[in-house]
Amino acid sequence: MDSPYVILGWWQVALASLLILINGVISASLRLKMERTLAVAAIRTVVQLLLIGMVLEWVFRVERATVVVGLLSIMTLVAGFTAVQRTSCRYPGIWWNALISVWVSSWFVTAYAVMVVMGSVQQWYQPQYTIPLMGMILGNTMNGVSLGLSALIDSLKSQRDRVETLLALGATRWEAASGPIRQAVRTGMIPLVNMMMVVGLVNLPGMMTGQILAGTRPIHAVNYQIVIMFLVASSAALGTVSVVLLSFLRLFNRDHQFLAARLESSAPPH
């Protein structure tokens, strides 16, 4: 039976890789000295995607809950730790706060998607649904958490005198930090809100494009994409709010003191 889509073999992949050569030529002609980096990036793309392809083949074949949960856990761990990488400054416990925020928000939203929104799936752990859904949700949640965390830390550092002044006048810790908190949550959510505003007008999202390429009717692909957009937006919002509030509790104690020294003593990222 004919496949509803064009199956790409190694030959086609090799043809596409020729296009990377154009980037190499640009780099060489403009003396950007990026040829080596480009080559490494291209090779990493091939190797990493081949590896994950093989892992997914195996996971899809065995179709066991423990294997799926294990893979999702590894993805979540990587997302949680990556979210902290971009912060300009860290405090003790930041890794746990980011990990808990990414974990709770993305797993809750994925579980809701699989068990409630797509109620007709055979098993809750069906890898065909859980893995791609979790991948998209995690990617966006990680970005939201990372942006929110960075914005909170930067804002508390730059507005330290203001926060201290408010506390000295009798403000509660919440009153003193509410400005930076709001700013941080807004920063974490803005990319997704912007994306939802222009989706379909400026770009066609990858998942929808993939489904259309695989032969799905556009209107069905659109429904999927709408669901995905709402899932990733809610997970990113939950993750951002969670990491900002957990950070607030680490940086302001019950005695309404701003523990700014925790920020100063932390190691900057590489």
């Binding site: 005198d161 201290e164 506390l167 000295a168 006048l169 009798g170 509660t172 005695d255 309404h256 003191q257």
Partner: peptide, 12 residues
């Protein structure tokens, strides 16, 4: 603490 700080104000 907030009520205390209203009574005891620190000025930088």
């Amino acid at each position: 603490v907030p009520e205390f700080r209203r009574r005891v104000i620190y000025l930088h």
